[in-house]
């Protein structure tokens, strides 16, 4: 891997007055009756790196969707940057979403566009007429280590490279919070490790990172904050945790 291993910051993060993300008694019941989250309380501070772990169906993706207000909570309140998003009007959503960079297990790349065009797209549709577009695109592609793949099409790249393009696209508007929902779900262990290092590097530059995953090896190797969800409940929240509860076989 060409990306350097991010240093683990020795000092505990300097917690600002208020968390950048906070959940207060949040529950989510889908229209079909599924209770995906139950009474969740959370606080994540600027500059934190957090793993959100739990088995498939635990409610990780639901939590991510609530953050970007793709879904609204059934009860409880969610604040981003001190702004309540749980009752935010539809009109304000674009501005909220520009605070986030987000990637998923499927890379959601546009197959008819080149790597550079895929990344540029994010700026073209949010800040049309942006100056120095090319430089900005090249800069983020350099950060993710794809500076030599600018004019390739997504299907000419490996899975790991495609995820890097998605990460570059999510980074290009300089988000405050980076969300990754199972970003390594389709990747082999080595490639996964590279992606996680990239996320650590992004965090090292000051961006808050929340990564939902059920990739046990990665979580255990990195030893950062771990929030474990099971059956819609937060069952554990540790500063330097592992995938499973220390010395047990359970979350």
């Amino acid at each position: 891997m060409s990306v350097a291993v991010a240093e683990r910051s020795a000092a505990p993060p300097q917690h600002a007055l208020r968390p950048v993300i906070s959940f207060h008694g949040v529950s989510k019941v889908y229209p079909n009756g599924t209770e995906a989250l139950r009474d969740v309380d959370l606080a994540i501070h600027q500059g934190d790196f957090c793993f959100l772990v739990g088995p498939s169906g635990a409610g990780k993706s639901t939590l991510v969707r609530l953050l970007i207000r793709d879904e609204a909570p059934s009860t409880g309140r969610i604040f981003i940057d001190g702004q309540e998003v749980s009752r935010m009007s539809h009109r304000k959503l674009p501005k909220l979403r520009r605070k986030f960079g987000i990637v998923f297990q499927d890379y959601k790349l546009l197959t008819r566009r080149t790597v550079a065009q895929n990344v540029a797209f994010a700026l073209q549709v949010t800040r049309p007429g942006q100056r120095h577009l090319r430089e900005k695109v090249e800069e983020v592609l350099w950060i993710v280590g794809l500076e030599d793949k600018l004019d390739k099409f997504p299907d000419e790249l490996s899975g790991g490279e495609q995820q890097r393009v998605a990460i570059a696209r999510a980074l290009v508007h300089r988000p405050r919070i980076f969300l990754a929902d199972e970003p390594t779900g389709n990747l082999d262990p080595d490639t996964s490790w590279g992606i996680v290092q990239l996320l650590l590097q992004i965090n090292h530059r000051g961006t808050t990172v929340l990564m939902a995953t059920h990739n046990r090896e990665v979580v255990d190797l990195v030893r950062r904050r771990v929030i474990a969800i099971d059956n819609g409940r937060v069952v554990r929240d540790e500063a330097e945790g592992s995938y499973l509860r220390e010395g047990t076989a359970t979350l």
């Binding site: 970007i68 539809h90 959503l93 674009p94 501005k95 909220l96 979403r97 520009r98 987000i102 959601k108 546009l110 797209f121 994010a122 549709v125 949010t126 049309p128 696209r169 999510a170 508007h173």
Partner: peptide
Amino acid sequence: RTEIEIMKLVGATDWFV
């Protein structure tokens, strides 16, 4: 649909879409 999904995710306005 993918394009629209991305536009919404990165914060394009409804009118832009």
